[in-house]
Design a protein around this nucleic acid. Structure first.
Lengths: 324, 324
DNA sequence: GGAATTTACGCAACTCGTAAGCATT
DNA sequence: AATGCTTACGAGTTGCGTAAATTCC
C-alpha cells in the first residue's frame, strides 16, 4: 500500500469516478492511475470501485470504508507537512477560508486586512459558497476554516467554535410606511412582502420561527444569499428587507432606513469550524483569536480536547460572546 | 513522504533510537533505514531526531509531533487492511488481547474457549502485563483490546467500555480466627496482616479507601499481581488474603475459607479498551458481546460515536452491569 | 577497540509516460 | 463516433543490500 494509491482513489472519487479528468487534474497519466488503483485493489483483495466493463460505475461498500480512512490518512499527511513548516517557516504558509458571502463581505475584511499585515508571507485564499459547500470543503481538508452561521452541524468531522452573535435589521426605503415606526411588531412586519436570505442557506430559520410563533405566515417574495443583492431589491421596492445588521453601512446605505429587529428575531451565532484532527498552524490560532477574541489558543485547544461537539457547545454556553 | 519512512521513524522510536536493532527487527538493512530517515528529514526540512555526531540521542519536539501523527497514520493503514480482510476473510484474522493476570486466569478462559470454537481461523494472542503496559499496547495498536480494572483512564487514545463489576473476598486458612466470622467488620480485618494486590497495579485503591474511611491503617505484608501467588502466601500463613472473588475456585481452594467482603469494599469495574479510530473486525464485536453481554455492536458503536470518555461513562452509568 | 552510523556502489524493482487496443455510452 | 479504461513497452528513478569508511562511547 502506497500513499499515492490512497491519493489516487480519493481523487478519483472526488472526480466522480472519472479517471481521465482525475489524471489531468493531478498532472499525471490516466493509465498510471488506473494501474495503481487496480494494484491497490489486488493487494487488498477487494474491489474499491464497481465496474461495468471498463468503466467505473460506483464505489463498493468496502471501497467507501477504505476511502473514508484514506482521506483521514491523507489529511494527517498534510498535518505532518504543516508541523514541519511550523518549524521551518513559522510565518509562511497557506490559509484557506471557506465562508459565506455575508461573512466575506462584512465580518472578515477588517480581520483579514490586519492578518495580511501581520503575516505578509501567508497566502490567503477565500472560498465562497453555501454553508454546506463550505462545511464540506473544511471537512475534506480543502479549506482550513469554515465560517458560517448555519448548516455546519451536520458534519461530525468538523469542530465548531462559536464566534459572535448577530441580529437582524429591517431595511426599507425612506418612503416606506415602516420607516416611521421605531419598534415595529411582528404583525406590522407581516403586512409586507419580505426580501431576505434564502431559506436553509444562511439563517431564514430564525425568521420563520418568529412568524410561526405569532401564527403568521411571512410572504418572502425574493430571497438571495447576498446582503448586497437583497438591498438592491429593497431599493427597487420589491419588499421589506430582513438583513444581518452588520451588513448595513451607514455611509453607503443612506437612502435606506434600517430598524433594529433584535426584539423580533432571536440572535444567530456565527461559528468557525475546522477539521477534527488537523494540525493548526500558529497563524491559524492567531487568526481565530483576532476574529473572535475569546478564542485564545488555550481555549481552542481545550475545546479540541473535549472531542464532542455537545461538550464544546456547553463549554461556550457559559461564556459571553461578542455581539455584532 | 512514503509510508515506509513513517514506519521507520516510528519503529526507531520504539527501539530506543537504535537503528541497528530496528533494522534487525524489520528484517531489513540498517543503512536503508538510516537513509530513509534522513531523506524524510530532508524533505520536511526538520530534524526528527537529535544527533550527537552519528548517534541518535533524542527526539526533537518537532519530531515528536511528527511521530505522533505518523503512528496515527500507520494505525489507519492497518484499519484499511482490516476492512478489506473483513470482506475477503470474515472469520479469519488476528485477535490480540492485552490483559492482567487475574483476567487472563479467571475471567477470560470460558469466553476464549467459546470464541476459539466459534472462530477457529482467528489467531488469538494474549499479552500479559501491568495495567499501564496493557493500556499502552492497546493505545499503540499492538493489541486490539486492553482488559483491566485500573490504570487505563490515563490514555486518551483509548475508548473504554465497562464490562462487569466484581467484589473481593477475604481468604484465610481454615484454622484462622476469621474463618469463624461470617460477616467480619473492617476493624476485624485490620487486626491481621494483609496479603493483597500490588498497589497501583490492579485495585488496592478501593481497599485503602475503606480502611481510611474507618481511620484504620492496613498492614500489607505481602503484595503481588497474581491471585494464585497471593493464595500461596495465604496458605503459608503470611496473612489474610483480600482477593477478587472470581479468583476463588471452590474445588482447588478447598483448604481455604473465602468470606465475601462486598460489604467492606466498594466493587471495582473491569473495562475493555481499544484504540480510538481503529477499525473493529466483526469477530471483535462478537468477542466483546460474549465477554460482556450488554456490549452489543449497536451499543459499542454508539459509545464510539460519543467520542468523549466522560459521555461514554455516563451512557453506561444508567445500565446495570453484570456482577461476578 | 567495539558498536553504531554514514558513505559508496550496484542490482533489482517500481513508477510513470507514451502509444496502441478495446469496451462502453 | 466519441469518450474512457486497459494493455504493452520503454526510460528514468528509487529502494535496498553489501562493503568500506567514519565516528562515538
Amino acid at each position: 500500500m502506497k500513499l499515492q494509491q490512497l491519493r489516487y482513489i480519493a481523487e478519483v472519487v472526488k472526480h466522480n469516478l472519472n479517471v481521465s479528468s482525475t489524471a489531468e487534474n493531478l498532472y499525471t497519466s490516466q493509465p498510471g492511475i488506473s494501474k495503481q488503483v487496480r494494484m491497490l485493489e489486488d493487494e487488498l483483495g477487494i474491489q474499491i470501485f464497481g465496474r461495468s466493463g471498463k468503466h467505473l460505475t460506483h464505489v463498493t461498500p468496502a471501497g467507501q470504508q477504505v476511502i473514508d480512512i484514506a482521506n483521514d490518512i491523507l489529511s494527517k499527511v498534510e498535518s505532518i507537512k504543516k508541523v514541519s513548516e511550523e518549524y521551518t517557516k513559522p510565518n509562511q504558509g497557506e490559509l484557506n477560508i471557506a465562508t459565506t458571502d455575508t461573512q466575506a463581505r462584512y465580518a472578515l475584511p477588517q480581520i483579514i486586512r490586519e492578518f495580511i499585515k501581520r503575516y505578509p508571507k501567508v497566502n490567503l485564499h477565500m472560498h465562497q459558497g453555501t454553508p454546506s459547500q463550505i462545511s464540506e470543503q473544511a471537512a475534506r481538508g480543502d479549506a482550513d476554516f469554515a465560517i458560517a452561521t448555519e448548516g455546519m452541524h451536520l458534519y461530525t468531522d468538523l469542530i465548531m467554535l462559536p464566534c459572535y452573535h448577530w441580529n437582524r435589521s429591517i431595511v426599507v426605503t425612506r418612503d416606506h410606511p415602516l420607516a416611521k415606526i421605531t419598534k415595529p411588531s411582528i404583525e406590522d412586519l407581516a403586512q409586507y412582502p419580505l426580501v431576505t436570505y434564502v431559506f436553509g442557506f444562511d439563517k431564514a430559520s430564525e425568521i420563520e420561527k418568529s412568524f410561526k410563533r405569532a401564527n403568521l405566515d411571512p410572504r418572502v417574495v425574493f430571497s438571495a444569499t447576498s446582503a448586497d443583492v437583497l438591498k438592491t431589491y429593497v431599493r427597487l421596492g420589491l419588499g421589506v428587507g430582513v438583513i444581518a445588521s452588520m451588513a448595513i453601512d451607514a455611509n453607503i446605505d443612506k437612502d435606506l432606513v434600517a430598524i433594529d429587529a433584535s426584539h423580533l428575531f432571536a440572535h444567530s451565532t456565527t461559528k468557525i469550524g475546522f477539521r477534527r484532527g488537523s494540525f493548526l498552524r500558529g497563524y491559524m490560532y492567531d487568526f481565530m483569536l483576532h476574529f473572535a477574541p475569546h478564542l485564545s489558543r488555550d481555549v481552542v485547544e481545550k475545546a479540541v480536547a473535549l472531542r464532542d461537539q455537545q461538550l464544546i457547545d456547553e463549554m461556550f454556553a457559559s461564556m459571553t460572546l461578542p455581539i455584532r
